[in-house]
Design a protein around this nucleic acid. Structure first.
Lengths: 129, 129
DNA sequence: TGCTCATATGAATACTTCTTCAAATGAGCG
DNA sequence: CGCTCATTTGAAGAAGTATTCATATGAGCA
């Protein structure tokens, strides 16, 4: 048993627990990161973002590329825009969206690299492959 | 207007749309990737996985580290185990979990590198920073 | 101005998903 | 064998999320 945050909890390896807790990011950072992953956790949004990887597209082209209704696309883009993952540019009555978040771009690149040829890159310490 | 998948849809830049559709991963791959991101989209699970980054821990220590109930932790681990992200080892009445998925490990490393010091790495083509 | 088109928005429904509580499993130990 | 402990499981309730349809905004154009 150990006392953490004023609560008494059951603990086996107290020093390890303390060390790992030490390294744990702040709650806000964790929540933010989880949110980003959440944005990527929907196949529709994932399609949209992948479509935007190599440049901007208008809403109707995004709908055509991703096979979704224009309304669904617009809702999804609204969410992504609220999180500053994409930005929009208006040209006449059309709206062109682009991927604006470098961090998300990296995650997408990494994810795509792994769907095509799944090669392990940083194996767990102790593994021999 | 263009015909895609037998449906007539409104399209502005038809060749672009065709090219981007070409590069789009298969639906199964997309769904799988979205699922992985989904596993990372919950702060509780994110904490668990981060705690496991440098080695195995038992359930109660995971609960202590992440500040969740043991039941919640067990449910989360069950889900992660179902997706082969973690594996468990039993030692007596305790269960030790370890991170087993190299791809997820990379995503976690990348995400963590970005929560601490947010440095852009691959800017969009056209950006000058 | 009035019409059409591209996108955006709102509201409602259906669908997941998280959390909690209660109880079950199954190992160690007297 | 019966008790305790660590973990797992099930079920239920609450909360969030996605999709759709209908409508609104607002730009271009006659």
């Amino acid at each position: 048993m150990a006392v953490i945050d004023g609560c008494t909890v059951r603990v086996v390896d107290a020093p390890r627990v303390a060390a790992v807790r030490e390294r744990m990011p702040a709650a806000d950072d964790l929540a933010g990161t989880a949110e980003v992953f959440g944005l990527l956790s929907d196949p529709g949004r994932l399609r949209l973002l992948l479509a935007l990887l190599d440049g901007e597209l208008c809403v109707c082209d995004l709908a055509a590329v991703t096979g979704q209704s224009e309304s669904a696309v617009s809702h999804a883009l609204r969410l992504l825009r609220a999180h500053r993952v994409v930005t929009s540019r208006r040209a006449g009555r059309m709206a062109y969206y682009r991927l604006e978040d470098a961090h998300v771009r990296m995650l997408l690149d990494l994810a795509m690299a792994h769907t095509e040829h799944t090669l392990p890159v940083r194996p767990e310490p102790g593994a021999d492959a």
